[in-house]
């Protein structure tokens, strides 16, 4: 489990502090909206003001949810980079992850497929994830079904194929800039 210090970024502090600050703001505005709502007469201009305030607060809460999901994504990446030791393998990781997302694998399926690509056996994956081998197998079936592959070798072939295709030569290549 040794980590290369260059690749290990640690917790995304900026994002975490941003989420914390936004949470304080959201509660502050929410408290204000509730306060206004209790004090509100029946005037239409007051209720319009209240609706705008409330919508802004909801937008802020949506931003917090979005950022939290992004933090989870970063942590997932970090978890899969655990054993990577070079920049090349980090780039390889990007290609693999792009495939996983194109296949719409769930987070658990992505995790298991990542271990599979690294050549780990089903019992090893089960031990690492703290679940039963049967669970891993059913996730693997979903991975094969979604990727349209028959097994580990086939899956690796598809990913390797993607790596070769990623060269800029052919016009139909996926790799924009």
């Amino acid at each position: 489990m040794a980590l290369d210090p260059k690749l290990r970024r640690g917790p995304p502090w900026g994002l975490i502090l941003l989420v914390a600050a936004q949470a304080v703001c959201a509660v502050f505005f929410l408290s204000d909206v509730l306060d206004d709502w209790r004090a509100m007469g029946s005037s239409i201009s007051a209720s319009r003001h209240l609706i705008v305030e409330f919508a802004a607060t909801l937008a802020l809460i949506a931003a917090i949810v979005f950022e939290t999901r992004y933090i989870l994504r970063l942590l997932r990446r970090e978890a899969h980079l655990e054993r990577s030791v070079s920049v090349a393998s980090a780039a390889m990781r990007d290609v693999i992850e792009a495939h996983f997302e194109a296949w719409r694998l769930t987070p658990a399926e992505q995790d298991i497929a990542a271990f599979l690509v690294k050549g780990m056996t089903i019992p090893e994956i089960a031990a690492l994830r703290g679940s039963a081998e049967g669970t891993i197998k059913s996730h693997l079936n979903a991975v094969y079904r979604k990727s349209g592959t028959q097994g580990r070798g086939d899956l690796l072939a598809v990913i390797l194929d993607g790596l070769i295709e990623a060269r800029p030569e052919p016009a139909d290549a996926v790799a924009g800039a």
Binding site: I71, L72, R76, H80, P107, Q110, L128, R129, S131
Partner: peptide, 8 residues
């Protein structure tokens, strides 16, 4: 959070 993100 990593456990949650990866389903472990």
């Amino acid at each position: 959070l990593t456990e949650i993100a990866t389903g472990r």
